[in-house]
Simulated assay, not measured.
Amino acid sequence: MNSTPTQNKLLRTIRTLLFILIGFAVLLLLFPQFKAFWLPINTEPRAVTARGTLSDTERTNIEIFRQASPSVVYITTLTDTVNLWTRDITRIPRGTGSGFIWDRYGHIITNYHVLERASEIRIHLSDQRTFRAVLVGASPDHDIAVLRIPLVSNMPAPLPIGTSSDLQVGQMMYAIGNPFGLDQTLTTGVVSALNRSLYNDNGSKINGLIQTDAAINPGNSGGPLLDSAGRLVGINTAIYSPSGVYAGIGFAVPVDTVNRVVPKLIAKGHYKRPQLGILIDEELNKAITDKLGIKGVAIIDIKEGSPAQRAGLHSMKKLKNEGMDVGDIILSIDDQRVNNTRSLLDTLEKYYSGDHVKLTYLRDHEKRSITITLD
């Protein structure tokens, strides 16, 4: 039986539709995302995927910030300007910084450079309460200052004190502060190096600094550097950066220095470095000790009425034949080796004015010892 043209056309149509359906099925099978063009859009929130437990590092970070952040304060300073025509005094914002609660008596620690030349200092606690602070004392040579605010209820707890003497490169470090005015900011890193030195704006050198790669930016100055136990181990004080912002190298005053200087600032308003009363010179000392083949610190000169003079120590002096008498060379203090001028200053920093120390020195190739009272 012969098919009619109508039947042939119908068969062709059916075959075409069948091929289309098969092709569409293959597309859905091989390319599931193709379904999205045909399925209705889902406007409901997506189901949340369970994250599981936090890692040990995350839990440590969270706990350190939770415990320490209430003790970190935001510092703003203002300065007075005088209109030369009207003689009116206007108080304008000068800068911002960070600090932290030291004790239950309202004392707050920060960097001296945060407050320098400020007419008014305001402290903002983490709960948004604001107080006017007074300067109790400062040691510009250490870049440390102590402020005090009124005793108020619900004062945040002081930060627990750690030690910086046993820090090791690679230890985790946590910095909390107010970079660029962004209060209560936590950054993390490690101890990158120890015993770094930097010059202050006043020309003095701060020794024994902790170097860290925890992000420190303008506004972090004066804030705490913490270890993984949440203990204070330093005060964030400076950065090394060609651009003035974080470049991976920050510095902190070690807490052992802070814990020695701050009590004196609270008690007396100033800190006096313990002194022998001698003049030393780094370059001249190196030339002398290298020539003699020894390690120590040559006494270049002695101040009148100083502990060194009272103890009978000898300084360099010119001889009649145009030569030089080297004088005494300090070898150790309380059996702590003194190899150069820096180590002498670092060793003296561990003592207080009035302390008695045993000084071992070399005179005419003979080793001697004497007890001396630091000034």
Rank of each mutant, 00 (worst) to 15 (best):
L21D: 02
N339K: 14
G170A: 13
G137Y: 01
N285T: 05
T77R: 06
D80A: 08
I329N: 00
V258E: 06
D328P: 03
E44W: 08
I109V: 15
L362Q: 00
A214G: 13
G99W: 07
A252E: 01
R59W: 10
K350Y: 10
Q309V: 09
F65Y: 14
L292K: 12
V262M: 11
A68M: 03
F251G: 01
G203V: 13
G52R: 01
L331M: 07
L374A: 04
M316H: 03
I64E: 14
L30N: 10
S315E: 06
S369W: 01
D335C: 07
I333W: 02
G162P: 00
K320G: 03
H107I: 11
S98T: 12
F34W: 02
G52Q: 00
I123V: 15
E63V: 11
V136M: 13
A138K: 02
N195Q: 13
I278C: 00
Y246L: 13
V114L: 07
D290M: 11
V326M: 03
L359Q: 03
T188F: 04
L232D: 03
S228V: 12
A145R: 00
G234L: 11
I330S: 00
L186D: 00
T371Q: 13
D56T: 14
V48A: 15
R104I: 12
G177H: 04
P218Q: 00
N321S: 04
I89L: 01
T6S: 14
G181K: 03
L225N: 00
L345H: 11
S369P: 02
D88Y: 10
D375T: 10
K9S: 06
R260C: 05
T110I: 13
I92M: 05
H124I: 15
A145C: 04
S241E: 04
T77F: 08
T373A: 05
L362K: 07
G137I: 06
V82Q: 12
I280E: 01
L125D: 05
V146R: 02
A214M: 12
K286W: 13
L186A: 00
Q171D: 08
R368W: 10
Y240G: 04
R260G: 02
V191I: 15
D80V: 01
P5I: 13
M173F: 08
I64G: 11
I239T: 02
R46P: 05
Y74V: 01
I210N: 03
H124G: 06
D328V: 06
I41F: 11
T43P: 04
V152M: 13
T53S: 15
E366I: 15
N154E: 15
M173C: 12
P40I: 09
W85C: 06
N8P: 00
V72N: 06
Y361T: 07
D256C: 07
